[in-house]
Design a protein around this nucleic acid. Structure first.
Lengths: 209, 209
DNA sequence: CGGTACATCAAACTTTCGGTTGACCGGGGC
DNA sequence: GCCCCGGTCAACCGAAAGTTTGATGTACCG
C-alpha cells in the first residue's frame, strides 16, 4: 500500500531534497507540496494524504505548529511529522501538543527519515532518539522542568524585553512576571535574568537565533 | 562547457535537493558532495571543480567561512558560492572577506540559484540584491562595529555574569564595564543588557551555546 | 473530597543596573 | 604639536530587577 505524502516547507531546495530522498522508496508517493503553512492546511484538507512532513519555521504568516494543530484537529486527519532544523524543548513541546506524531531534525540521514514516515503512517509515535531521550530526561527530572508559562516569559526575556514590556505583551502584571522569573531562577539554579537566558540556551530550552 | 559543482552541506536532504534542482540544468554536473567543511576543503583541492556551493553552518568542527577562506586561498581555486539559511551582517562580511564569489539564501527559487552559479562560474560576483544592498549600507555606516574590548564584555554578559563579576574577571572597575556597555547599547541601538545580548546573538557577534 | 501544582496578583524592601557627567591617559594620524 | 579614539575610572541618581511574604482561583488527580 502506498503512503501518500505532503511536503510543507518554504525552501524549494528542501522540498526538492525531500522529494528526491523519499521518491526513491517504492511505497512512498509525494502527492503535493506547500510553500506556506496556510497552503499546507488547505492541501491536507483537500487531498487524500497519509503523512504530512511539516517544517516549523515559515517566513511570515502562520507557524508550522499552528498548521499542525489545525490539520490534526480534523477527523480522519493525516499524521504530521515535524521536520525542523534546530531543536529546542519549547519547539518540541509545542509540536507534540499540537498533535504531531513525530519530530525529526533535517540533518537526519535519509534512512531514518523513511523509517519515521513509515512509523507515523502506521499510527505510532516517531520521535528521534535524541528527542525521545530529552523527553525522558524531562520526565525523570521534573525539578528543573519549566512550565509553559515560565518558558514563555523566559523566551521574551531572551528576546531582550523588560519585565514591563513582557507584562504588557502577555497581559499580566509585573508582579506575575517577576513571580514566574523567581521560579525560573530557582529551577535553573541562577540568580539573574541574563544568567537564566544563558543557562536556558545551553540546555536548549529556548530559541536563540 | 560543463560547470562542475561541489556541494558542501551537512544536511543530506539539502544536498539531495540541490542536486535535484541543479542536475536538471544541462550544463551543470554535480561531481562531489561533502557533509563537513573539512571534507569540502579536501575535495576542492583534489577534484577539478568550477564552483563550490558552501553552507556556513556545519555542526561541530570547521565553519563554512573558514573552509571558504582555505579553498579560495589556493591558486586556480574554484569559485565559492555561499548558500545559507539565515543572513546576518557578520555572516555576509565573513563570507565576502573569506573570498566568496556570492552569497545566496536557501529559500531562493531554483532559477535564481542556477543564475548565480553561472555568474560565479564566469568569475563575476553574484550577490543577492538584498545582500548587496545591505553591504552598501554597511559601507556607509561603519558605526556599528564593536571594539574588541566591548565584544569581550558583551560576551561575558551573554554568559550570564553581572557587572561586578565581569569587572573582577577582566580586572576592571565596575565603572569601566558600564562604560563599555553604554557604548555597546548605543552601537546596537538597544537599552538593556538582555536586549544587547539578543541583538548581538541575531547578528552573530557573540557565541551562544 | 482534599492535596498539589499552576497561574495570577499585591506591597514593601534591597540590590543591581542603566544612564549621565566628567575626567585621565596613551597611541595614531593630520 | 594637536586632536580624536579607545580604554580606564569616579560619583551620582533614578529606574529596573530581584526578594520576601502572602494571598486567591482553578484545574487535575488519587
Amino acid at each position: 500500500m502506498t503512503i501518500r505524502l505532503l511536503l510543507a516547507d518554504d525552501h524549494p531546495v528542501v522540498r526538492a531534497g525531500l522529494r528526491a530522498v523519499l521518491d526513491t522508496e517504492a511505497d512512498f508517493a509525494v502527492v503535493a507540496e506547500a510553500a506556506t503553512a496556510e497552503r499546507a492546511v488547505e492541501l491536507a484538507a483537500g487531498e487524500p494524504v497519509d503523512v504530512v512532513l511539516m517544517d516549523l519555521q515559515f517566513g511570515p504568516g502562520m507557524h508550522g505548529s499552528e498548521a499542525t494543530a489545525l490539520i490534526t484537529a480534523r477527523p480522519g486527519a493525516p499524521r504530521v511529522l515535524v521536520l525542523t532544523t534546530y531543536d529546542t524543548d519549547a519547539d518540541i513541546l509545542a509540536a507534540v501538543e499540537a498533535g504531531a506524531s513525530g519530530y525529526l531534525l533535517k540533518d537526519a540521514p535519509p534512512e531514518e527519515l523513511a523509517a519515521a514516515v513509515r512509523t507515523a503512517a502506521a499510527g505510532q509515535s516517531a520521535l528521534a532518539p535524541a528527542v525521545a531521550l530529552r523527553l525522558m530526561d524531562r520526565m525523570r527530572m521534573p525539578a528543573e522542568a519549566l512550565t509553559k508559562r515560565e518558558l514563555e516569559v523566559l523566551q521574551l526575556v531572551a528576546d531582550g524585553l523588560s519585565n514591563q514590556q513582557i507584562s504588557k505583551q502577555l497581559f499580566l502584571s509585573q508582579a506575575t512576571v517577576k513571580s514566574h522569573l523567581v521560579h525560573v531562577y530557582a529551577k535553573l539554579g541562577v540568580e539573574s535574568r541574563t544568567a537564566a537566558v544563558a543557562a536556558a540556551a545551553t540546555r536548549r530550552l529556548i530559541r536563540t537565533p
